[in-house]
């Protein structure tokens, strides 16, 4: 298993977000995590790279228990993980070029020429050539998302964690991002976890889809399996018909 989540519990004050949540992500697969807003999907992603600590439970990445690692080893592990933030989280005091180069500058063996070459290649992949010297504030929402993606893929990570990579994007850009996620998986064998609300994207890019509901996993299966699911909560969510779940719960 390349990413293994075991019995995660997380609360904020009296609100329980994760309630004994376990999930395995196989090497090279793209797994989408779906669920209602506030279900704990982003919390799960942040927990995987130790940005957030659970109240209980373990996360194993590459055979290492994330919460047991000394800080230096945790940073070493993070170099193998690319993280695409929901709102891009670009450094607003830097140009797009410097944003994308940030992760690369932590790789001591790379020369400045190699860094610039990798930056250009990453920006080319997300169709942002020509925006190198612009500041994040000069980009549209979709361009910011793509720049965030370029920053995450620039280091050629083994794992990619995407937090709603296509939310708020137009259909054409959404398709471009989906194709890029698919290429990362198919060609570079990157293991990916995608948190999304967008079922069209989830069907297009995922090897498996997991549904998070009330702090634990409600369903895990292939896109075809989730489409065929008769569970009212799953069916209600994927078809966008809350009345199915409400009727079953009544």
């Amino acid at each position: 298993m390349s990413i293994e989540i075991k019995n995660l519990h997380k609360s904020f004050g009296s609100t329980k977000i994760l309630n004994g949540f376990s999930l395995d992500v196989k090497e090279g697969e793209t797994l989408s995590v779906i669920g209602h807003s506030g279900a704990g999907k982003s919390v799960t992603l942040k927990t995987i790279i130790g940005l957030m600590h659970p109240d209980e439970g373990e996360v194993w990445v590459d055979g290492k228990n994330v919460f047991q690692l000394p800080r230096e080893e945790l940073y070493e592990l993070r170099r193998q993980v690319g993280y695409v933030f929901q709102f891009a989280a670009l450094f607003d005091s830097m140009s797009i070029r410097d944003n994308v180069a940030m992760g690369l500058r932590r790789i001591k063996t790379m020369t400045e020429g190699e860094i610039q070459h990798r930056v250009s290649a990453s920006l080319y992949l997300v169709d942002l050539v020509g925006s190198e010297d612009r500041r994040p504030s000069e980009l549209s929402g979709g361009m910011k998302k793509r720049a965030g993606l370029a920053r995450a893929i620039a280091t050629q990570p083994k794992y990619l964690l995407y937090d709603e990579p296509t939310s708020g994007l137009d259909p054409v850009t959404t398709t471009t991002i989906d194709e890029l996620i698919k290429r990362m998986s198919d060609e570079l064998k990157v293991t990916g976890i995608v948190v999304t609300h967008d079922m069209t994207s989830a069907y297009r890019i995922s090897d498996r889809i997991a549904m998070l509901h009330e702090g634990s996993i409600k369903f895990v299966g292939t896109p075809d399996e989730i489409r065929a699911s008769e569970d009212p909560v799953v069916k209600g969510f994927v078809e966008g018909r809350p009345e199915i779940a409400n009727r079953a719960l009544a």
């Binding site: 940005l51 993070r78 989280a89 670009l90 607003d92």
Partner: peptide
């Protein structure tokens, strides 16, 4: 989340 982004970039 820029501080989280820094952490994620090691």
């Amino acid at each position: 989340e820029q501080i989280d982004a820094l952490e994620s970039l090691a």
